[in-house]
Design a protein around this nucleic acid. Structure first.
Lengths: 201, 201
DNA sequence: GTGACCTCCGAACACATTGTTCGTTACTTG
DNA sequence: CAAGTAACGAACAATGTGTTCGGAGGTCAC
């Protein structure tokens, strides 16, 4: 996937910039962060930044791809149950909630700032992809369009739950939030798309 | 609420700017639209713009408040059923879908552009408020936190459905999308928060 | 180690956008 | 009609973007 850059300077620079982005995200939020902020924080030349990333957005995307990789792996683990039965649908949910709790300042900053919308939108796409993968693994009837719709429905709902949870200080334990979300979501989907409402908690 | 400006020049200018914003939203999306674009389109002086609105965002907000007013009124109508029974929960849903179909180019532009995230976030808040109002009107058990969570859950899910629908050309009739959404949402909420699962489209 | 190569630096640049100012012109209201 | 007020428009400083370049210095392959 990601081609390994051989030159250590490249690795170092990319890492510095990515770290600096995260730091600024926490400090000022995405929209308020300028390229100047990032390169100052990273202590990297301006030209160097543009040698690696086309703009702020591309840099952000590189980080989100890392998140995607992690969640995808976690989802695979959740789906691969011994009996072949999808015991635990919506497997990304708990993983993401726990990842969020493990990086609370970052997530809180993304979600708390009103300008985090752009970042959240990218994460929404990531979640929707995972949900699509998940729904495909379930025995689901219904036309493809309804499939798509349910996918977006669940992704949107999850993003909202995640946002709410973070906005309220992430007080409830991830397991609990995960449980509520999965029940809220699966009830409707099971009824509308017709699959057995197993996979609770 | 909104104080009526007496001077016709004021009314005219504000209207021109609001219309120009909509036009630019359709043409380039929110993020790509500059104040310069707006005042060029409106054929209004730069200083004049800033005499009326602090920035692009404020101008947008003024439009969204109009939308809020419309949907609130529509919701009241849906809630005020003769028997006093909340026959039709989530009353904003159909109204919004139909409003979207009536302003398809605008909605498609907001939703289709990746930079529409900011606008969508504002609309999410609007929807969440309406949902809160709606949930309050239902006989719902459960702690306040769960209330809040459900509110965000539903708002997020609706935004996702709306986005999906628009992204796919708004082919399905609003009534159908409304029905699917309400069933998806109410099943889970009814089960989790404990209320009779009446109110099926 | 050494040489060839590549990356980074840093400063400057043109360009776009923002939000403000102010004197002048022109419209609106009472 | 006269006083008040809004709009014009041109200029301004401030900030941010993305690009360019030669030269300095680190890195890899041998």
């Amino acid at each position: 996937m990601a081609k390994r850059p051989t030159d250590r300077r490249v690795q170092r620079t990319r890492q510095l910039l990515q770290d600096a982005l995260i730091a600024m995200l926490i400090e000022k939020g995405y929209a308020a962060t300028t390229v100047q902020d990032i390169i100052d924080r990273a202590n990297v030349g301006r030209a160097t930044f543009y040698a690696h990333f086309a703009d702020k957005e591309t840099l952000l995307a590189s980080r989100i791809e890392d998140l995607r990789a992690m969640l995808t792996q976690e989802q695979k683990r959740a789906l691969a149950t011994p009996g072949g039965v999808p015991e635990r649908s919506l497997g990304f949910s708990l993983a993401m909630l726990e990842h969020a709790r493990g990086h609370l300042p970052l997530y809180a900053a993304i979600v708390g700032r009103e300008s985090g919308a752009f970042v959240l939108q990218r994460i929404h796409r990531l979640i929707a992809d995972l949900v699509g993968f998940d729904l495909k693994a379930l025995a689901i009837k219904g036309p493809a369009a309804l499939h798509d719709l349910a996918q977006e429905y669940i992704a949107g709902a999850f993003m909202a739950v995640l946002t709410w949870w973070l906005d309220h200080g992430a007080k409830l334990p991830p397991q609990e939030v995960d449980g509520i979300f999965r029940r809220l979501a699966m009830q409707g989907v099971a009824a509308e798309l017709g699959l057995r409402p197993a996979a609770k908690g």
